[in-house]
């Protein structure tokens, strides 16, 4: 007699896992646990347990589909071992050809956002218009209101797509500011030395 597939077991948690699987395969973007729970009409804790089951089933080396926790939710992606084949079939317009200027702008918006174009220009020392426009077009940043004064400049923030493209669960996974080694003291000393040499 044929043994039933493990997925078609009668265990209610397995049934919930199958529902979540279905939801994730239909979704175009990562789904937060709460949203999954609402759609599956089940409680968040059980959904988390079922996601654990799915994570075990859909992991690198075991399946061509991998369940990942990214951009504040859960989503399926292709296994890394299939990347070459995927690359032959699919283009990745969002990631492709991000210039150093775009990455710097992106870093500013990710760390200091929501922030305005003038603020970005002030830090980078060059006009930020084209970099901002490019990132907007790619969907990596989005408008997030305006500065409060009348006629205030538009502010920008990073999007969920940014977190997904960079494989971040959330912005808190970015390295902490003090881990980014800018030796301010050293810079200061060098500048003081220059200032001292300046004729009064």
């Amino acid at each position: 007699m044929e043994r039933p597939l493990r997925l078609i077991a009668t265990n209610p948690l397995d049934r919930l896992a199958r529902t979540l699987e279905a939801l994730l395969v239909v979704a175009a973007q990562p789904l937060p646990t709460e949203e999954l729970a609402a759609a599956a009409n089940d409680d968040v804790e059980r959904v988390e347990t079922a996601l654990g089951l799915l994570g075990e089933r859909y992991r690198e080396g075991r399946s061509g589909i991998v369940l990942e926790h990214v951009a504040g939710g859960y989503a399926f992606r292709a296994a890394r071992e299939a990347a070459e084949a995927c690359g032959r079939l699919f283009e990745r317009p969002v990631q492709r050809g991000l210039s150093p200027a775009a990455l710097e702008t992106l870093a500013i918006v990710a760390y200091l956002g929501p922030c305005t174009r003038p603020a970005i220009a002030r830090i980078r020392g060059v006009a930020a218009d084209s970099a901002v426009a490019g990132l907007l077009e790619r969907g990596l940043i989005a408008e997030a209101g305006r500065e409060e004064e009348p006629g205030g400049a538009v502010r920008y923030r990073t999007t969920a797509l940014f977190e997904r493209v960079f494989g971040l669960e959330s912005l808190s996974q970015l390295p902490r500011v003090d881990e980014l080694g800018a030796d301010e003291d050293e810079l200061r000393e060098r500048l003081h030395a220059v200032a001292d040499k300046r004729p009064a």
């Binding site: 870093a107 760390y111 830090i123 020392g125 800018a182």
Partner: peptide, 17 residues
């Protein structure tokens, strides 16, 4: 220093990408 930090963050992002 601010700019340097941003440059490093950009480098981190690039590496991550």
């Amino acid at each position: 220093a601010e700019y340097r930090r941003i440059k490093e963050a950009a480098a981190w992002l690039s590496e991550r990408l």
